[in-house]
Structure formats: structure tokens, C-alpha cells
């Protein structure tokens, strides 16, 4: 796997995949996509980078521990549910706010926040598993 071509292409591929995963995450509410599938794409990007550059490098690039990222995701998702407390509606009720930015209207909502949480949770968990497995391979 450790060819020059792969090592050269990998950073570009990873960058494209991460951007694409964010795109998939954001289009998720009304169209196919969402946090889960976005998180999976981002995690596969990390796994690819791990194969190309080595696990040590990835851990350095990630800054945070993958499991901590997963925890952050769950925390954000929980927070998205708790926000509805301030509007006297049940837990996890969707709340919407619209931002006017120039010509377009941006819809912000708690489902989006929840989906971002899912994104991080999936990204963190799968990345942790992938990196652990790759580390195991390298150790041999």
C-alpha cells in the first residue's frame, strides 16, 4: 500500500472526502445524506490517511483523541435536545431559526445541531476502531 502514487494522492483525496462529508452532512435534512453517512465518509478519509501516512501522523493531525471526538458528538446531540427546554416544548423538539445573509436565507435548527453531533459521534467511533486496527497491522 505504501507506494509513491498513493502517498502523493492521499492528502488530496482525504481533503476532498472531508469536504464532501461536510456537504453530505449539511444537505441531510430534506435530501439523502445526514450526519451518519457524512461521519462514515469522514472516518474513511481518516482511515485512508492512516494507511498512507501512518497512524502516528493521523493522531497528530487530528489533535483530539478520536474517542473524545465521539464523546463530543454525543454531548452536542444531547445539547440539541436540551435546548427545547427554554421554549417549553418536549425534549428533542425541532426548533428553527432563519438567518438572512444577503440574498439567501440560511435555516438553522436543532435537528441540524443533532445531526452534527451524530456526525462527530460516528466519525470518532469509526476512526478510533480503524486507527486501532491499523496500529495493530503496523505493530507486526
Amino acid at each position: 500500500m505504501n507506494t509513491v502514487i498513493f502517498r502523493t494522492i492521499a492528502p488530496i483525496l482525504v481533503a476532498i472526502m472531508v469536504v464532501f462529508s461536510v456537504f453530505i452532512l449539511l444537505r441531510g435534512h430534506n435530501e439523502p445524506g445526514g450526519g451518519f453517512i457524512g461521519g462514515l465518509i469522514a472516518a474513511s478519509a481518516i482511515a485512508i490517511y492512516g494507511i498512507a501516512a501512518g497512524v502516528e501522523e493521523v493522531r497528530k493531525a487530528l489533535k483530539f483523541d478520536p474517542i473524545a471526538i465521539a464523546g463530543f458528538g454525543v454531548f452536542i446531540a444531547g445539547l440539541a435536545g436540551l435546548l427545547s427546554y427554554f421554549y417549553q416544548v418536549p425534549f428533542l423538539t425541532g426548533l428553527w431559526a432563519y438567518l438572512d445573509i444577503g440574498p439567501s436565507k440560511v435555516a438553522l435548527s436543532t435537528p441540524l445541531l443533532f445531526d452534527i453531533g451524530v456526525y462527530f459521534a460516528v466519525l470518532g467511533t469509526i476512526a478510533a476502531i480503524a486507527l486501532a486496527l491499523e496500529e495493530d497491522e503496523e505493530g507486526k
Partner: peptide, 11 residues
Amino acid sequence: LMGAALLIMLR
């Protein structure tokens, strides 16, 4: 649940 998430972030 959120406490578990917070503690794993700060492990």
C-alpha cells in the same frame, strides 16, 4: 448520557 460523553472527552 451527556455526563458519560463529557467524561470520555476529558479522560
